[in-house]
């Protein structure tokens, strides 16, 4: 089992960082419940709409808009496990996510590489995916492999499958996978099950987890819903990771961004728990602010760090493991 330091706390001096007081967290939470109940989110997937309607959400099937009554959101949060085993193919690389202990992962789904030999910028390849997996395995401070680059020479339709194949073949750490849709998630789960010796064993020792992104503001596209449902049915850990851009796809004030961000993640959480209660759920964030001069997302600004610190407090408030961008 891998061990990490405690979040936001200096282990020697004991000084720490806390973005919010409990009152402020309650306020963000209350505003989120209000957004979920009165505005709702787009859920562009018929199966997800059925699941949410059966669970008691208010569903407008024509508009594909779901409004979430407060008690259902609270109920769903209470169903999430507080600690999640992110198993390595090699048990010595197991990572237990949850509490305040921090692990480090690669971030991913990059599409370019600076070539090691020539220094040139070029499309990333399957070989890059394999090399990064090997490197991640060798680096002692990295706990989990997040799908790093896409093999651009492979067909668009199967890149995520090739990535998973490389991760399972070349790596012995947990693989946080990308999946295009439910069908692909199912195939990747089968691959992982074949590695560990069956689907039951995979539930006990999930060497793979999935990550999906809502489309801000307040939209869960069909493919994302499918992956959440597929992961939940197989009890594979799922992270719903919002990448809102404050001032572009979410409100300009960071507090407002945090509210719509939170609403998107919780909508995914409700879908996962209503599909299969107890599904390991990871609260995700790569939310940042928007560069108004160049018209692009900036993943490295102070606001990203502030949001990530705030998100970690929010996840802790809900008793959920979280996955945030480091910039």
């Amino acid at each position: 089992m891998r061990k990490g330091p405690i979040a936001g706390t200096d282990s020697i001096t004991g000084w720490g960082l806390k973005a919010f007081t409990d009152d402020m967290l309650s306020k963000i939470h209350a505003a989120t419940l209000d957004v979920l109940e009165t505005v709702g989110t787009l859920v562009a997937c018929d199966e997800a709409l059925d699941i949410l309607e059966r669970a008691g959400c208010w569903v407008d099937k024509k508009a594909q808009v779901v409004k979430f009554p407060q008690h259902i959101v609270k109920d769903a949060i209470s169903k999430c496990p507080e600690q999640i085993l992110l198993a390595g193919r090699d048990p010595k690389n197991d990572f237990l996510a949850g509490g305040r202990e921090v692990g480090i992962t690669t971030f991913g789904v990059g599409i370019y590489m600076i070539d090691l030999e020539t220094g040139e910028l070029r499309d990333s390849t399957q070989k890059d995916m394999e090399d990064i997996t090997l490197l991640t395995d060798a680096l002692p401070h990295i706990d989990v492999l997040t799908a790093p680059v896409t093999p651009r020479e492979k067909p668009d339709e199967s890149q995520d499958l090739h990535m998973a194949a490389a991760a399972f073949t070349y790596g012995s750490k947990h693989y946080h996978s990308d999946a295009e849709d439910g069908g692909h998630a199912s195939k990747i789960i089968e691959m992982a099950a074949a590695v560990v010796g069956g689907k039951e064993e995979l539930v006990r020792r999930p060497i793979v987890s999935f990550c999906v992104c809502p489309t801000s503001p307040l939209q869960l596209i069909g493919e994302a819903c499918e992956v959440i449902i597929e992961a939940a049915r197989n009890r594979i850990p799922i992270s719903v990771l919002t990448m809102a851009m404050g001032g572009a796809s979410s409100p300009l004030p960071l507090s407002g961004t945090l509210v719509t961000h939170n609403a998107e993640v919780l909508a995914g959480l409700v879908l996962a728990q209503m599909t299969n209660p107890g599904t390991p759920f990871i609260y995700g964030s790569s939310t940042t602010t928007f560069d108004m001069r160049h018209g692009t997302a900036v993943v490295g600004v102070p606001e990203l760090g502030m949001i990530s610190a705030a998100v970690s407090d929010l996840a802790n408030y809900y008793g959920l493991p979280c996955y945030v961008a480091g910039g």
């Binding site: 599409i111 896409t150 651009r152 668009d156 339709e157 890149q159 295009e180």
Partner: peptide, 10 residues
């Protein structure tokens, strides 16, 4: 035409 994803660029 606009595309934001590598999977939709095609």
């Amino acid at each position: 035409t606009s595309a934001l994803l590598t999977t939709t660029m095609s």
